[in-house]
Structures are given as structure tokens and as C-alpha cells.
Design a protein around this nucleic acid. Structure first.
Lengths: 137, 137
DNA sequence: CTGGATCCGAAACGATACTG
DNA sequence: CAGTATCGTTTCGGATCCAG
């Protein structure tokens, strides 16, 4: 079959899993960081500000399992681990880099829009950014 | 200052908020659906398979607050609500569409990689897709 | 150095029921 | 038709401690 005709709008489509996979909070930054070339665990941790130990490991493992990242262990003492992009992972980099670039380029417009958002009722003392899901309080 | 020099790798950078915003589970599909043109609430709900009532509303509200989507209410009986992309939102569409397209194009490769993932130890009876976060059991 | 294991709070998500 | 409200479940994400 030449055209698989996957359609992400279908709830049952396996594309959904892939979509959820790459929309993880740290996936984009991790892949973008790896686009700079093979790096050690510690280098990645330093480059991606604010990522916790756990999430970096978890994200890398997940990407490895799905064929986007390669993990190479060198049994030195202490052990050395290098991470690099697979060919498949490399094809995703431009995409996530575009997302990152869009975010950086449009931060101010988004913030301006959020700040000037007209509250439905009541005082406008709160910033729109906080309104999204504060109903639980 | 001409170049704001936002850098998403910095933990304190406001780009992070925008990044988290557009990496929501339903944001990409919602924006892609809206790229087809102005649509009613019900149309969107039908087009985006598997989305719950709550999440569609929540996603649309969030996008509206951040200036990506416009919401127009016509006080007919019953009420009519039309959603459309703002100019800012339109600039994001190609980006999220690329993500969706990548996912659809590479589902099989990702699944193949996940299926052939070598388990660190123990039997290989389980599929890799389940290994990611089963530690809590 | 690299990361596994565990605990725990905070969100995101989803199903259902109710409303104008 | 287009939501809102509520509840329960799942997942996320960080801190800490431990280990090869």
C-alpha cells in the first residue's frame, strides 16, 4: 500500500501516540539541544535550563525507545554516556526547532494579547495567564 | 532594542510559557482544524475525534486568551458561536501542521523502533510502548 | 558520572450531569 | 447549540536518596 492515509483527526489513529510523544514538555528542547551534535548527559543537563534529573533521563529514554535518539555507553570509570540523534530523529529536528523559533519570535505578541484580554465579568486585576484553569481553587 | 534575544534554553525565559501553551495535547489539532476556515463549536468537536467537551472548550479559551483564536458570539436562539484564527494564530498553523504531518508520515518508523527496542534485562514479552512509565505499578 | 527508585504535590485529562 | 460544574483518574514533574 503506497499511501497509508493516516489521519491524526481520528481518535483511534496511532498518529495520536506519536503526537503525544513529541508534545512532551521537554522533548522539543532536548531534540533541539541534540541538534548541536553528540553530547554527554551532563552537557544536556546544563544546556537545558531548569530540567530536572528525572525528566531528562525519562525524556531521553523515551526518545531512545522510539528511535529518535541513540544512546552509547562507554565502560570507562566512571561510565561515559553519549547521546546523539538517529537519522529519524534528525528529520524531526527542523520541525521542533520551528516551534521553538516561533515561540521565541512571538512571545511578546502572545503576552500582549493575554494582558489585554477582556475579562468576562468582574475586575481586571488578574492577568489572563492565570485565568486558564484556576477554577479548582 | 531590535533583537530581544529570547532563548528558550533559559529556564526563566518567558518563551517557556509559550512553549508549554502550544504543546498542549489538543492545541495542534485544534489549530490545524481551524486552518480550514471559520467553524462552529460543534463542527470542531466533530472534526477532532476523541476530544472531550471540556478539553475543547478549555483549549479554545486558552487560545483565545493568548491571541491565537477569535471567538464570535451571535445571539440567535440557540446561540451561535464561530471560531476563527487570528493573524497571529495563522502564523502558527504551518508550524503545528508540520508537526502533525511529521507524525503521520513517521508513525510506522516510530512504532517499528519501539517494537524492536531491546529490553535492558529480563524477557522481551512486553512491548516497549508500555515500558516508559510502568514503574509506579 | 550517570541514572534508577521512591515519594508526593500539582497539573492535565476525561466522563458525566446540568444549564441558558 | 454551546457551554459550565464537578468529580475521579492519570500523568507530569521535582526533590531526595541510593547505586554501579
Amino acid at each position: 500500500m503506497p499511501t497509508p492515509a493516516y489521519n491524526a483527526f481520528s481518535a483511534a489513529c496511532p498518529t495520536r501516540e506519536v503526537l503525544n510523544l513529541i508534545s512532551g514538555k521537554w522533548v522539543g528542547l532536548t531534540l533541539t539541544a541534540l541538534a548541536q551534535g553528540t553530547q554527554r548527559y551532563g552537557e544536556l543537563a546544563g544546556r537545558i535550563g531548569g530540567i530536572s534529573h528525572k525528566m531528562l533521563t525519562q525524556t531521553l529514554r523515551m526518545l531512545e525507545q522510539n528511535g529518535l535518539v541513540e544512546r552509547k555507553v562507554t565502560p570507562t570509570i566512571p561510565v561515559t554516556v553519549d547521546y546523539s540523534l538517529t537519522p529519524l530523529g534528525s528529520t524531526l529536528v527542523p520541525v521542533v526547532a520551528a516551534v521553538k523559533a516561533w515561540a521565541e519570535a512571538n512571545v511578546e505578541q502572545v503576552r500582549a494579547a493575554a494582558a489585554s484580554y477582556e475579562m468576562p465579568l468582574g475586575g481586571g486585576a488578574e492577568t489572563a495567564a492565570l485565568v486558564a484553569e484556576r477554577a479548582s481553587v
